[in-house]
Nucleic acid binder design. Sequence first.
DNA 1: CTGAAAGCGCTAACAT
DNA 2: ATGTTAGCGCTTTCAG
Lengths: 352, 352
Amino acid sequence: MARASRQAVTIRHVAAEAGVSLQTVSRVMNNEPNVRDAVRERVNEAVAKLGYVPSLAARRLSGSRSYLILALNDRDRTIEGWRLGQGNDWVDQMLYGGMLKSAEHGYRMIFELIDSHAAHVEREVSAALAALRPDGVILTPPHSDNPVIVALLEARGMPFARIGSYESGAGVAIRMDDAAAGRAATEHLLALGHRRIGFIAGPAEYTLSTERAEGYRQALLGAGIALDPALEEIGDFTFDSGVRAAEALLAQAERPTAILASSDQMALAAAQVARARGLALPEGLAVVSFDDTPVVRFSMPPLTAITQPIAAMASTAADLLIRSAGGDVIEAGPYILPFALAVRGSTQGNDH
Amino acid sequence: MARASRQAVTIRHVAAEAGVSLQTVSRVMNNEPNVRDAVRERVNEAVAKLGYVPSLAARRLSGSRSYLILALNDRDRTIEGWRLGQGNDWVDQMLYGGMLKSAEHGYRMIFELIDSHAAHVEREVSAALAALRPDGVILTPPHSDNPVIVALLEARGMPFARIGSYESGAGVAIRMDDAAAGRAATEHLLALGHRRIGFIAGPAEYTLSTERAEGYRQALLGAGIALDPALEEIGDFTFDSGVRAAEALLAQAERPTAILASSDQMALAAAQVARARGLALPEGLAVVSFDDTPVVRFSMPPLTAITQPIAAMASTAADLLIRSAGGDVIEAGPYILPFALAVRGSTQGNDH
DNA sequence: CTGAAAGCGCTAACAT
DNA sequence: ATGTTAGCGCTTTCAG
């Protein structure tokens, strides 16, 4: 009993069992040509019988692929999300999309935290690459546009994907169409009869902020409504900044009947400010948010929101990187994935 | 340009730079004795200068540790949690505790999903072990008590931790004290003046269910209150089962003024049933839940709950396994980690 | 179409 | 205290 079976089944055992050379087993395992069907089958039988699974370490070391995809996330944000214990949607959706897609291809996704503030970004990323030698790297915001990381990956010739990035350059960009999302959200409000619609933008450093604002304006103009600068405020995605912005919007004599906010937190802030002023959602004020993290489903009422395709972006990234590692030539992108508008009680009737 | 720097810096480069043998570099990297301080320093300088990081694959292959901890989670539950997008607390807290602790030791935690229903459990686990050759495995419920998995790990001589398990046997068990938690939750209600306290238990197959029930009863008896079978219902942790149980409890002539439910979902169900019967929380009915997943913070009012130390359990598991891999002899356990009682609006006043 | 030899980067076991 | 030799399990040449 329980003698540590120090020695697992290796390619050698399979070769012996099937009566072929190591090489042939390797060819079969990697789906290479130049093996007769009869032999291939014999090998597969031996593999099944012995329960053989190739060692990742040995494969990697012998100069082939590592079958590893490395996903780099922002350290502080991620840990803060975990610490708060309110459900870390970004991480979950990354895993959901990226890990499952990787597994489909026999790959594994390793999730790693990188501190982007530190001067050691380069060292941290280098160390992870050296230790793991992944076949591809997935960058998430804010790393997606970090010039140090991008340059490092490019210099190393490492295939990588930049999720949520509007910048061009090395690596394949994967994102949603924020302008279209801003338009869709605004059109939803227009369709409900709103004519004075306030907008809380994100910081201008983020391209997606300006894209969303652009979509908002396009929708208004498309409906023949003149733009009013008094209806546009700027926040920084946080709850507090949302409070300030919403107060500025709702303090106006001719206050908006709806607010579109560029993040869930700012939308929740707007809802709170509205309540404080005696405005009930959705009658007194309609609110639409961006992101659709779990929290908006649990607010009262739940918020209508633009859903970011995080899982789909991670899945696409993994798929592209793995196919690229397999020798496929993949298109440069950018890959624009569809968003969704989840209509909930903050804009519509009293369902839920 | 970006010529793929095919060849990264290896132990050989460091040895050359420092003017020593490979072995000496290896010794320094692994903090082994028998190296003069002067030499050690010279090697460390070379390492720093070249930015050398050992290849995990080579280390693993040469027969030493893999520096990998494998965390096995239930496939269906995990994916369902991701799909619902309500914040997958278990996974997040696992990562929070396990990944960070692993990183402290220079380890990586690989998160893998295993389908416990399938007849292939054994094959799935074997394959993961064969491919990764981790230094330790963390089992989470329901895998923690899966006899096939436990037997396999034991036969392989693989160190492993069973999180949330009350069973004895191979592997180190890490859990909280559910009886004490049941007692604490009940005593909280007693302290608030409640005398008729309903209890919704989990399925009896789970030891933790009976432990929690035991704690509930101890607390009542300790307060000199006779047990009343009519106050105990059984659910299966789901919302629907919670509805049935709560309805049975609240339909009684002498209905309870408080309900302790063995899961968040059942507690939310109790809250809903109460509302439907015109009972407001906490005045009409006080509710306490177990688990403390994100969702209970967002309900109205937020639910008072027993918080499971998931992150701490994962952290402890990683720490024990890694120290074990390092040659330390670790105590058999079980390791009992402290829970917490988060008091919120469903039992107490009107804060928030 | 198949096999034999060499070597990936490291550590274990054995020198010295 | 340090260096040398072998070999982990696989894939890559290169031969047949």
